[in-house]
Design a protein around this nucleic acid. Structure first.
Lengths: 213, 213, 213, 213
DNA sequence: TATGAATGAGTATTCATTCAT
DNA sequence: AATGAATGAATACTCATTCAT
């Protein structure tokens, strides 16, 4: 009950360990500049072992992207389905959960990675678009429609507003994994998100003047 | 008066031609995955010629970043200095000019490129930070302070608000050079920026309730 | 007991095999004109394998020089320490051993190689000077001092005589790896050395006239 | 009488200037590691100009070797032909002249250069052998035969003794252009040659014992 | 003649991938 | 399953040589 299971657990954990190591290096150095030997070393195995679990560098990249974010989307879709409060509160809930599962985990680097490599891997980009981007936008879009219907939000160009709202959240992560190192002052992401949501709340809400129209 | 200068004109134009070719490929494939031979071919010269003008691949990258954006910052600083209207109009002017000189030119790819490669070129990232990011943020910051002082804007956490306002503009470009290809519908950037600025106008402005306080 | 260790024995033998191949080509064509691919082919491996054992062409060159000659110097120092016969016999012993371990082995090419490349690799030249030249000269110098003290040799400018005595021995090897091919008649090195030592014996010895003074 | 001739003189001096520049660099860095651009720069012309005077790098190398030393051999042959004193004095005369025209001029580097590159340029090596080595050896050989015939020298293996006598003289130059830089103490070549000739004089002369036989 | 911009073949080095153990 | 030695295709960079001016 001691030796064998540990080995087994090890064996089953290998792919995840390798993907975690790969994600870290891909985010740090980019796909092309990441050496598989470094991935193996970081995961504590040999170069050959990596090929027991992944067919190629590209397959590893694909797995890193696919395993990372998709589950969170599913969860957020469930959150939206059972939400009952105001639409703005729904936006906040979605953001909170996303932050908890992506923003403060190792997966936080994926948006930057995907942005940097999308053109080199159209197939993976397509997958990411279908399963992350499109569904994420749909969630925000639903919340906006809901708020407009209830009178909570003013009339909006929903499709465009979705992007404008999401952009600062993505930039927060992209920034963290790119130019953040240039500045000694470490920004507080929670505060950043609060300021953003505050701007959104007022920006989306009905103005007195408008409500009188 | 036409035959002789061809060679000379060529020689003076070469660096710019090479930088343009390099920017295109760097943005498209990333720094590491860009072959210098492809840069040369795109510029219509041979591999060796490239080395007559740039000492190395890194030197070429550096030049691409440095020559591209810095001049625009200088111009925007001049615009801010002589502005007389409302603070929100100043923000619009700065955005317009930046869009004219960066957003709709070949330089539009630089933000994505810099984001993708910052960690591999700390020295260049530092340069970019000092000369583009810091000064760009300062311009927006000044406009926000001005608007708060005049009562045009509500009380704000300026440093954070700067980032939140800039983020959608950067994401617009980053998006264009990464995942945009996944969607057949080509978005209208002018409309996107209009929606963003509309959100900002209302988001930053004084609320009735607040103004009564 | 034979199959398994093959791989391992190979791995341990590789550096020496590569160095031998490199020495042959460096001596033949010079450092700059030697292609690492040719070194690899001569050693029966691929280009990449070479880099498993040596970091760079220069590291390979360094190893070739350092591993080749230094051990022989140590042995000759031991020979000198336990010698009891005449001083001229000591010179002969040193020459014999050096010939056995360098002159008739693959290392014979090193003096020409070092002479040809010293200016391009000052650091390696310095190492060679300290560990081969200086110590070799010291051995000869000791023998000369010893012979002068015992009355076997006439009074000599020791430092200069060292060089004059060593020169024909070095030239013998240098010649073999450079212009020797121009002459069909293959000279006999043993005879050459005998003639040299005969000249040295009479040249260093006391003359009758001098002994009467 | 001023502008034109200067230009002309310049034009006629070009090949010699280029050869001098090339010799310096060939000796310093070796043939392969010498860049023709550096040769041109050192000679104060452009890279293209070099090709007006020499067809290729190899042709330049050939010229450097051929123009450098051959004339001196001719002169030494004349010296030997009209010599009347002792045979040892003839050896001294030949050495003096060679030292004056080669040893203390820029041509002093040629022996090292030829030694280092002989195997890469068999044709040039052959030329050098025929015109420099063979004729130089013949001169020394004649002096030795003459001394033996007159009873001035003891019985010798002439062919081998030639090489043994010449070796220290060549090594003096080879040393100067290779490892000499490793030692701070700058040796005095005149003194070195004096010690060598002193050893030769006693080494070649008849011994009392021998003369009694 | 002289220039120097342009070329492209050639080489050192890297790294994804394979495979014998 | 796991290793790591071996491979060789790929790429940055150099430099002899050419040629339009």
């Amino acid at each position: 009950m001691s030796a064998a299971p540990i080995r087994k657990r090890r064996k089953e954990a290998r792919p995840a360990e390798l993907m975690a190591a790969a994600l870290g290096l891909f985010v740090d150095k980019g796909y092309a500049a990441t050496r598989l030997e470094d991935v193996a070393i970081r995961a504590g195995v040999s170069k050959g072992t990596l090929y027991l679990y992944f067919d190629s560098k590209e397959a590893l990249f694909k797995a890193v992207i696919q395993e990372g974010i998709v589950p969170v989307l599913l969860e957020n879709e469930a959150i939206a389905a059972r939400h009952t409060g105001s639409s703005f509160e729904l936006l906040e809930k979605l953001l909170d959960h996303w932050w908890e599962k992506i923003g403060r985990t190792a997966f936080a680097g994926i948006p930057k990675l995907m942005v940097a490599e999308a053109r080199n891997f159209p197939e993976i980009a397509q997958f990411y678009y279908e399963n992350v981007i499109r569904r994420g936008r749909a969630l925000v879009g639903t919340a906006l429609e809901r708020g407009m219907a209830s009178g909570e939000f003013r009339r909006l160009d929903v499709e465009t507003t979705i992007d404008v709202i999401i952009a600062p959240i993505l930039m927060l992560l992209i920034w963290r994994f790119s130019l953040a190192g240039c500045e000694s002052v470490e920004a507080d992401p929670a505060h950043y998100l609060a300021v953003h949501m505050d701007l959104v709340r007022q920006g989306l809400g009905k103005r007195e003047a408008e409500s009188q129209v």
